[in-house]
């Protein structure tokens, strides 16, 4: 259950954002679509607890995020949310496997089997021991999806996952994301300006 109500946010009393309410039953995916500068990334950060809203309520899986301390938010994010960034980021000194192991360590987990399963499912198992800067763009995106789902989150948040892709790849990536979400039992929220994605989602809201 994901429920937001009258979230407002402002940066340094200058830029004000007011967001539509979100109501998502468990099992449902959501597309949030809007043009640049309308606060898409801000909303994603609010939903993941990276930012705290000025007013309104954000309820995720029965927890009211606005009432958590930043330390509690770290833990909540760790246990419940996986984020796929527009541009993939990794710890550059580590290999693909080590990056995933680090993510597990942070969540107090250790499960090599799961790492293998995820990488096989994403068709990049052969890149297990590669440094992340040796990967192609597409492989990087897959590894960043792997990082988002390695700790079995209940919610996957994706920020503009397809903005720089051609139509074929765009559709591949979004199918991949949806498949991973289904395979590993997570809900998916994609935030984008890419209207090509509309056809892939039953439920969408425009900012």
């Amino acid at each position: 259950m994901i429920k937001t109500k009258e979230i407002k946010f402002n940066y340094d009393n200058q830029v004000f954002f007011k967001f539509h309410d979100i109501n998502l039953e468990s099992g449902e995916n959501l597309l949030i679509i809007g043009n640049s500068g309308i606060g898409k990334t801000t909303l994603l950060h609010l939903l993941s607890g990276l930012l705290k809203s000025n007013s309104g309520s954000i309820e995720l899986f029965g927890k009211e995020l606005t009432k958590l301390s930043s330390f509690q938010l770290d833990i909540f994010r760790r246990d419940n949310i996986g984020i796929v960034f527009q541009k993939p980021h990794f710890v550059n000194s580590l290999t693909v496997k080590e990056n995933l192991e680090l993510a597990q360590y942070i969540a107090n987990k250790k499960d090599n089997k799961r790492i293998e399963n995820i990488l096989k499912n994403l068709n990049i198992f052969d890149k297990l021991n590669k440094k992340t800067n040796q990967l192609s763009q597409g492989e990087k995106q897959r590894v960043s999806i792997a990082l988002a789902i390695v700790n079995s989150p209940k919610l996957i948040l994706a920020d503009e996952p397809t903005s720089s892709l051609d139509d074929d790849n765009c559709s591949n990536v979004i199918k991949l994301l949806k498949k991973q979400a289904t395979d590993f039992g997570a809900q998916l929220i994609v935030i984008t300006h890419d209207s090509r994605l509309k056809k892939h989602f039953k439920k969408s809201i425009e900012l």
Partner: peptide
């Protein structure tokens, strides 16, 4: 390394 540190934080690591 600011992006990779931000990544580590989003994975849930504490400050």
């Amino acid at each position: 390394r600011k992006y990779e540190m931000a990544l580590i934080r989003t994975l849930g690591a504490s400050r």
